[in-house]
Amino acid sequence: MPEPVLRIDDLTVAFETLEGKYSALNGVDLEIGPSEIMGLVGESGCGKSSLALATIGLLPVPPAKILQGTITFKEDNLLKFTEKEVEKVRGTGISMVFQEPLTSLNPLFTIGNQITEAIDVRIGRENSGRTKTSAQAEGVTWLRKVGLSDPEGAFHRYPHELSGGMRQRVMIAMALASSPTLMIADEPTSALDVTTQAQILKLIRKLVQEVKASVLFISHDLAVVAQIADRVAVMYTGMIVEEGPVIEIFEKPLHGYTQALLASYPGRESFNEPLKAIPGQVPNLTRIPTGCPFHPRCVRAQDKCRTVRPLLKEAWGHNVACVLY
């Protein structure tokens, strides 16, 4: 096993809210290897985005509070870094693509302006002595690489003049133009149509191979993650409940939640058969059930599931947090 690019150990984050302590992350362990696409899948409010923001140092502290754990990126604990040091990592070491490109692009600057900024930052810090003109040429090259039909034209346009799919391509160009070691993509295709989504997924797979970046790909959609990830981590109530190679997770799921989620997906049943629905509701993070957080909804729950909180451990080639293994 090569050294992981990113290693998260026992990360625990809580928010103080009026309703009480909101436990967004509860002892998350996660490793991403070099040039690996890690798919992080979970329902809304399970802590996926908190994990992404903590990793890139954008978690608002306060109201957030990092209670324990470490985030090791290239042998440094990012949580010990000062704001200045984190800023150096952001953009060059770790970059990010958000769900809604219209809110993450600046509406007042042209696409070219924003992509060369990403490149300038890298040049400035690498001190490679290149001029701004070469940054411009590189910007256009990147716009071509992400599949814009008229990269020179798009370079001079404003974000509102491009379609949603085009804007997301620009975001990906900006994120990769800075040659990051790790790109975090938080629901990058959720605001797009399925045909555009298919194009963007293909593009991300191709480009990260080219620049040899690792990816933390976050999605609520199991099907999307199946299409892009090398490994998959399944998250529930701020905990990773199962993690392993993508084929293993989809073909031999071990955790009750992963099994139930895959079984409830329409497509395998006959027309008159009801879907295998998961009973109950997704718990609120202010009131996480004791023991295994999934036990109230799990068909295989036993007495000890109510009291013992299982830790992620190796079983059958996966990592799974369940007392049954």
Partner: peptide
């Protein structure tokens, strides 16, 4: 055909079956 093939399947072995549509609507 292209639309239906673009819908991702929760099956990592069914990756290359997508028919890509050129351009934008």
């Amino acid at each position: 055909a292209a639309l239906i093939s673009s819908v991702p399947k929760p099956d990592p072995r069914a990756r290359s079956e997508m028919i890509e549509i050129k351009g934008e609507t």
